[in-house]
Amino acid sequence: MSDASINASTVTTQTRVNEASFGDYFSLLKPRVMSLVVFTALVGLLAAPVPVHPFVGFCAILFIAIGGGASGALNMWWDADIDKVMKRTKGRPIPSGKVEAGEAMALGLALSGLSVIMLGLATNWFAGAFLGFTIFFYVVVYTMWLKRSTPQNIVIGGAAGAFPPVIGWVAATGSMTLEPWLMFALTFMWTPPHFWALALFMRSDYDDAGVPMLTVTHGRRATRWHILVYTALLALLAVGTAFSGIGGPIYLTVAVVMNALFLRGAWQIARRTEDDSEADNYKVERSFFKLSLLYLFLHFGAILAEALLKPYGLGGWS
């Protein structure tokens, strides 16, 4: 056997172990985050008062999702160093050695350009530009700048995740009013309690990675009170939205019930000590985190229900 064939077989064995599959490239797009983007953008699109051709609507949501995925890939490229330290993220394609960081950057940039241009062509250039701004905000403002420099990273960075319903609305109407910004504010105010609850029970992850989460910079007691304050402000906003153009009796019922449960959870978190939490392995914090997922899904689901029932004279207050 020649040297060349030995080398070739060694390389083949190595690449077989670490070779990326199509699924690995797809997971660079953060499919779970993408599902939130798809759902909220869809609600924004359908709640808008201008009807959209179903195929154009489908394309708009698809390209918004691809844009969201592209920003996820760019986030993984930039954060590869801290992703390999954190338990939650070390299985991602770059830290696990399946995908090169440069490949993630190339994929992210290519899909960013494609999604912005295609959304602009499919709907309008205002929506395309807005998607471009959202990608810029998430990658440059949040990932590159704020995430590692301020404990308010989650608060301001949450704006990026809150833009999709506004983009969906703009894709349908070509303009903006108060209603899409209420949907934006709902996601924006929901993000901090959601992530701070996660930071409380993923104890050492952010410490190890040196990310200045509130739990690291201001302590866990302060984080618990921050969750309560943000949840209270969120409750006011969420219930108040019921009386806007996208609200109605269904939304009001959901908002009252879910905000009562969310406030109760935040109050329990604020009252607990670290010893209480460690004793039951952060049971309350974990259930608050799970509830937060249901919270957002049901609020946007209620907005969608109001919009879909409107043509039959059932949705909204009229």
Binding site: F22, Y25, H53, V56, C59
Partner: peptide, 25 residues
Amino acid sequence: RFSRNLGVGLTLAAFIVIIFGLTIV
């Protein structure tokens, strides 16, 4: 690399269908 190539191929085919559909609409 069959699965990867198949995935890329199907994605490109889907993209063509989308462009065609958008054009028609």
